[in-house]
Nucleic acid binder design. Sequence first.
DNA 1: TTATAGCAGGACGTAGCGTCCAGTAATCTG
DNA 2: CAGATTACTGGACGCTACGTCCTGCTATAA
Lengths: 207, 207
Amino acid sequence: MSGPGRPRSEAARRAVLLAALEIVGESGYPALTMEGIARRAAVSKQTVYRWWPSKAAVVLEALNEGAAEIAPTPDGEDLAADLRAFLWRSVHGARGRTARLLVALMAEAQLDPAFARSFQSSFLAQRRAVMVEFLERARARGEIGPDVDLELIAELFFGALWYRLLAASGPIDRNFADELTDALLELLADRSEHASGSEIESILRRS
Amino acid sequence: MSGPGRPRSEAARRAVLLAALEIVGESGYPALTMEGIARRAAVSKQTVYRWWPSKAAVVLEALNEGAAEIAPTPDGEDLAADLRAFLWRSVHGARGRTARLLVALMAEAQLDPAFARSFQSSFLAQRRAVMVEFLERARARGEIGPDVDLELIAELFFGALWYRLLAASGPIDRNFADELTDALLELLADRSEHASGSEIESILRRS
DNA sequence: TTATAGCAGGACGTAGCGTCCAGTAATCTG
DNA sequence: CAGATTACTGGACGCTACGTCCTGCTATAA
């Protein structure tokens, strides 16, 4: 398939990703530099710039590389149990070493518009989509009413999770996941009279 | 009051804060540097380092300077209306120029542990506390049941707001504030049987 | 008047930035 | 095999900001 010319070195690619992870693990993300990556990977600086525009791009690829084995979400027949499992998996996957990478990438996305686009589309939006699809399957089984905004539910969850990560407002543990599960289940229990009543009220109040 | 020696120059202080805001406004936060601040403020670099440890600290002080006139939250007798007003005020205050400052500071907090501490304690925790106190006053009036975790409510709100800011997942407008208001009101409507049932379930499920 | 603290102006070495070049290495096409 | 094409190395480049230091001057309190 690939045209003429020397093919890209897979060894160099892996060495770069590994070096980046090692440096972050040992010295923290702020200490990561393109020069340092090239040195540690024993690779020319030119090669690094050839394939990645910034250190954040390197880290994002390393992260996606490791997170390739995301097992699909198992759906049962009990929304409460399924959601609890789903949220716990998500919360559990945002701890320790991974947590440090996540917050660093989110920070970088705020400072680098080009990286922001790839991070938002190739990571954040993906995660939201997975959750929304999970909820839509439950709705198809009749476990969620038609009047609940599933996008909003997903945003409440990821918002709370990211807030804990970024604001260090509390532990990211099983209890946190359970509290969120209970709250979201309450919102998913579509008591339509109350819900539509509330919407009408808000419309009136706005005028 | 102050001991001997030349007093701190208020003119220099204001010049530094103003210069920082101007540079951010014109060229964006990433273009802000300590050297640039000193140049623009026509102030010695030494003076800047004398009073602020980092550019983020300068911006945080400038932000707090401008946000000094935060009017106290008016409590009425209707939780729904009060909460709607409260959330809208908060959402409205996180837009435009201020939004750019906020995301930059949050980003910096992830990369600079020393700044993270001051940002979390002197800003994020403050905002949460104001909201929790607002909710506690409503609870004291009997508008919120005793079994609702007000800290969690506040975290859901700020989480969603910050997520919109950082992930650019949607517009930060009146409709967004209203959706959040409706969702939180639903959670604040303490239907205790349902809630405690859910908690018991979660305890059983954990064992 | 003297001690004390703040400010201006500039110099310093360090380090990463992002780009460029010349030379070498690996692969496809004819 | 020969030539075209692309990738990788190694080093160099100017640039900019970093954070610290020094000298001399200025403004206030005791």
